[in-house]
């Protein structure tokens, strides 16, 4: 074999850069770009099992939005997702804001509290869901046992249509509250100390500090928390799946879009065999709603952010 002439340095460097980029670009193309584009195409197709059988235009989208029996399930699930979103926004994120402020004060043990509040965040939603399902059991669960200690008669939390969704929301808040709390805390720590001390000297109470001074200054953190809570609420799947099952029992009281999408696409007792066409239509709708609302929310929330 003859010795090849070395390539000019510029070409060599170009090849080197291409080699560095190639594996990542290949995986991303194959497993993100192609499937995401495919997801949009599939919504307009009919399927036989996993094989597309032809184009059906807007029929799938029309079915899941306006035609029985699909439409009723879609709108009910959407309603539940909105309830989840609003409750988490108020309960989980509101508490997180207060906890962040308490942590900001650097009271004794604040580092330990910081570790504790974030501990559930690292656990799997499956562990959290099963744990709370056991704790909420009406007969043998620790929750009702604890309530009995203070003379309150507990309920069959997950079995009653009036309390089931709320119970899962509470489990979600327990699981995730540490995340917004530490995002708020990081933002609060960036506020110059002098600003807070000056306000204190002027006689500002904690309530005034939290509502008038810190709130506008942590606006960028609020933007992130609101958008992530929104995306999380619309992708809700694991917690209801383990706590009340794929059908969103009792009687669909905990059915959300994630469960409905999975049942429609991959089949379940209530919806029969896998149906990739209607499943894709639901996925595209969820994607469009999440993308559109996130974009609007980002725009609106960014507008109230001020530079420090």
């Amino acid at each position: 074999m003859t010795r090849r002439r070395p390539l000019p340095p510029k070409v060599r460097r170009g090849l080197w850069v291409a080699c560095l980029l190639a594996p990542a670009a290949a995986v991303m193309t194959l497993f993100v770009v192609v499937p995401v584009l495919g997801a949009f195409a599939d919504a307009f197709r009919s399927f036989q099992g996993p094989r597309p059988t032809g184009w059906v235009g807007l029929a799938n989208l029309r079915d899941v939005l306006f035609v029985a029996p699909y439409a009723a399930a879609t709108w009910r699930a959407l309603g539940h997702n909105i309830v989840v979103l609003l409750s988490l926004m108020v309960v989980q994120n509101g508490l997180a804001y207060l906890i962040a402020f308490a942590l900001l004060k650097a009271l004794p043990g604040h580092r330990v509290h910081q570790v504790i509040v974030f501990l559930p965040v690292v656990l799997s939603a499956i562990v959290v869901g099963i744990l709370w399902k056991l704790l909420l059991n009406p007969i043998f669960g620790a929750v009702n046992e604890t309530l009995a200690l203070i003379g309150i008669q507990g309920l069959p939390w997950l079995g009653d249509a009036r309390t089931a969704l709320g119970s899962i929301i509470a489990a979600n808040a327990w699981h995730w509250m540490g995340f917004p709390a530490l995002i708020f805390l990081a933002a609060m720590q960036r506020i110059p100390r002098e600003a807070l001390e000056a306000a204190r000297i002027d006689g500002a109470t904690d309530r005034v500090l939290l509502a008038r001074i810190i709130w506008p200054l942590v606006a960028p953190a609020t933007t992130i928390v609101v958008v992530l809570t929104f995306i999380g609420s619309f992708n809700w799947f694991e917690l209801p799946y383990v706590m009340t099952g794929l059908e969103g029992s009792p009687g669909g009281a905990t059915d959300v879009l994630g469960l409905l999408f999975y049942r429609t696409a991959f089949g379940a007792v209530s919806s029969g065999l896998e149906d990739f066409g209607h499943g894709s239509a639901l996925a595209v709708l969820m994607f469009v709603v999440v993308a559109a609302v996130s974009a609007v929310a980002l725009r609106v929330l960014r507008a109230r952010e001020i530079e420090l």
Binding site: A24, A25, M28, L30, F31, V32, V34, P35, V36, L37, G38, A39, A41, D42, P50, I231, N235, F237, F261, A265, F276, G279, S280, A283, V284, M286, F287, V290, A291
Partner: peptide
């Protein structure tokens, strides 16, 4: 690369499954 940060890949599970 960074655009992928915003995409919920869960919603592309059907084409991913076929792929």
């Amino acid at each position: 690369f960074v655009a992928g940060l915003m995409l919920p890949l869960k919603l592309a599970i059907i084409p991913l499954f076929i792929q």
